[in-house]
């Protein structure tokens, strides 16, 4: 269990983490979602005792991280899969961690097998690894000491769809056995696939949190017509407010039947009409991202 309480970290005048509080329960995968630079990694580094907090606290089952004896055997941490010595072999990196924790070397082979790194891959130097292989190695390293709590920063980054599916299975089973998982991602899709609970962070502040079901369930309709402006006029004249969503589509709070009738009354031909499931979270996330985005946004279909 991880308890973060009113955590704040400032760099000069910049608040990287701003009064953040949340809890990660055992038996659940908690997804930490936010655009790049939102404060996810800083929060995780503070939990792991690498970055001192300006104020507030981050405790692991009531204990300050530096006070955990042999922490690798109680809490598994992966903060950056690329932060490995490029000249070391994958196997050697795990061997160093096992030696530090006082584990038998057989544990290294078990973990390599668990993350599907072959013996020949494990003898290659990390500079020759793809990002996906580094992630697998990093996860092996985090799981090495058989911890009950996992903290993973962007673990799905660089994994192919099959790899993400594999990680979902791995973390699902880990949580089902009673483990606590906190993982971060800047991709809504990854979090949707893997997490049970979602914490959304933007500009250092928590902007939404809840179970996946709560956050993804939003009343409303996604509607799209061949002539978007005609559709917008039709909805407005029917007294429905709408907002652009996806490429050329609109989203409104009304239910699909009302929207359909309004469009039919105005004689607008629809190409798509469906409940806007999850669109609320996606739009909120896109808004968050928009502030840090350099290009103009072309959102994908809002239904995700």
């Amino acid at each position: 269990m991880i308890t973060v309480d009113r955590l704040t970290k400032t760099y000069g005048g910049y608040r990287a983490v701003d009064d953040v509080s949340f809890e990660c329960r055992p038996g659940a995968v908690t997804g930490f979602l936010g655009p790049n630079g939102a404060g996810k990694s800083t929060t995780m580094r503070i939990i792991a005792g690498l970055t001192p907090a300006t104020s507030g606290s981050a405790l692991v089952s009531g204990v300050n991280y530096p006070d955990i004896p042999n922490p690798g055997t109680q809490i598994g941490v992966l903060l950056d899969a690329s932060a490995q010595h490029a000249g070391r072999t994958g196997r050697e990196i795990l061997a160093l961690s096992a030696l530090t924790m006082g584990l038998p070397m057989s544990r290294v082979d078990e973990m390599l097998q668990l993350v599907s790194l072959t013996p020949s891959e494990s003898k290659r130097r990390v500079k020759n690894y793809s990002l996906g292989m580094r992630q697998r190695l990093g996860i092996a390293n985090a799981l090495l000491g058989d911890p009950k709590i996992l903290i993973l920063d962007e673990p799905a980054n660089g994994l192919d769809p099959a790899g993400i599916h594999w990680m979902r299975g791995l973390l699902r089973e880990y949580a089902n056995r009673g483990g606590t998982v906190l993982l971060s991602s800047h991709l809504l899709h990854e979090i949707e696939v893997i997490a049970d609970e979602i914490i959304v962070i933007g500009n250092g502040k928590i902007v939404a949190e809840g179970t996946k079901a709560e956050l993804l369930q939003t009343a409303g309709t996604f509607v799209k017509a061949g002539d978007p402006s005609a559709l917008a006029n039709a909805l407005t004249s029917a007294g429905l407010t709408s907002a652009p969503s996806g490429d050329g589509g609109l989203r409104t709070e009304a239910d699909p039947a009302t929207v359909g009738k309004a469009a039919a009354a105005a004689g607008v031909a629809l190409v798509e009409l469906r409940p806007a499931e999850g669109a609320g979270l996606e739009e909120m996330f896109l808004q968050l991202t928009a502030e840090t985005q350099r290009e103009t946004i072309t959102p994908e279909g809002a239904g995700a």
């Binding site: 329960r25 055992p26 038996g27 089952s61 004896p69 055997t73 109680q74 009673g178």
Partner: peptide, 13 residues
């Protein structure tokens, strides 16, 4: 899921 047992940290290890 909320039924999972609380996890304790062993500080005597």
């Amino acid at each position: 899921m909320s039924t999972a047992a609380p996890i304790t940290i062993d500080t005597a290890r």
